[in-house]
């Protein structure tokens, strides 16, 4: 029973990782690619980590995995935001230069 739950969670996580990768390849520009990469990574990683936590039971290593999960949820959107912002600001600048010309 426990093994089956672990397998379901791991497979779900792998499914979302693969969807994220396919999205990364199929979407046309950086912004939409960021959508697929950011979102599918969060749920994929979380499902995999939950499966690992269930595997190791209640001890220090599962608490560590929980910490990894929390920090992942805080840092992932921030990193995505910074990448997208860098491109957005740069794009804006190019537009202005063209406007002056």
């Amino acid at each position: 029973m426990k093994l089956m739950l672990i397998a379901i969670f791991l497979l779900g996580g792998l499914f979302f990782f693969s969807v994220g990768t396919i999205g990364l390849l199929r979407f046309p520009d950086l912004f939409t690619r960021a959508h697929s990469a950011a979102k599918c990574d969060t749920l994929g990683a979380v499902l995999c980590l939950i499966a690992l936590m269930m595997h190791s039971g209640i001890n220090y290593s599962s608490v560590k995995l929980l910490l990894v999960l929390i920090f992942l949820w805080v840092t992932n959107p921030t990193a995505t935001h910074l990448i997208v912002k860098a491109v957005f600001v740069k794009k804006d600048k190019h537009k202005k230069i063209d406007g002056v010309r």
Partner: peptide, 21 residues
Amino acid sequence: IVIANFQVAKVVMSRDMKITP
């Protein structure tokens, strides 16, 4: 987040990606 993931997965897997950024 769970709903979001399923929606993005649906968009990614669909044959003709209907995206209007």
